[in-house]
Amino acid sequence: MLELKNIRKTFNKGTINEKPALRGVNLTLEDGDFATVIGGNGAGKSTMLNAIAGVWPLDAGKVIINGTDVTHIPEYKRAKYLGRVFQDPMTGTAADMQIMENLSLAYRRGKSHGLRWSITRAEKEKYHELLKELDLGLEDRMTSKVGLLSGGQRQALTLLMATIQRPELLLLDEHTAALDPKTAAKVLELTDKFVNEGKLTALMVTHNMHDAIAHGNRLIMMDEGRIIIDIKGEEKKKLTVEDLLAKFEQVSGSEFDSDKALLSK
């Protein structure tokens, strides 16, 4: 499904702020893999997701989605393969546009945009049903501007937009980090629902070790721009935070440095 072959990216090359963010990442995701990605600050988690999405060109390596080499394809053309939810709830939606207009844009992701009316009647009914499933009352506010929604509502809507057309790969970049714990739990619940029902392949970056262990069938830990731990199957199911910390120390030779990841339950 997804293959990353030795991808490398250094920011601000040749300046005093030079920062090697990805130092040769190799990863293969199978169809239906739901991998959580964890690591300290600056480990390269979000950078890896941005590399897959094509936010900027890579220094080296290849990104292959479902057999297609997308390494040199710009971000907007890659979008047809990808559903994306961002850390900042403001990023994933257009605030000045209506809820249903946002959905209709997502519904046409990767298709040509002609001079047909942007929302058909059949679509409106479909959106109404889909919003109802979110159970946030958004189905009665389809013509409201998205800017009027709360952060949690916006993330739930972005999640719906990311999956309204089945993506080859769903990229979740700390999409619950900006939410309060209760809302975050609700959005995670929705995430599980969408991934399971759609049998989606997904990569979910999180700061929260408990979430990383509780969700998905695979766990990836990154450190200093590399993948250092990759746990799947039965081993992942039995994993505890203590196991994970011990493993991290063993592999990296240092202590896990993110208090946020350790303290958040």
Binding site: A53, E75, Y76, K77, A79, K80, L82, R84, F86, M90, T91, G92, T93, A94, A95, D96, M97, L105, A106, R108, R109, G110, K111, M161
Partner: peptide
Amino acid sequence: CNVNMARAQG
């Protein structure tokens, strides 16, 4: 309205 969102939607 939102360049990042627009690009993410292709």
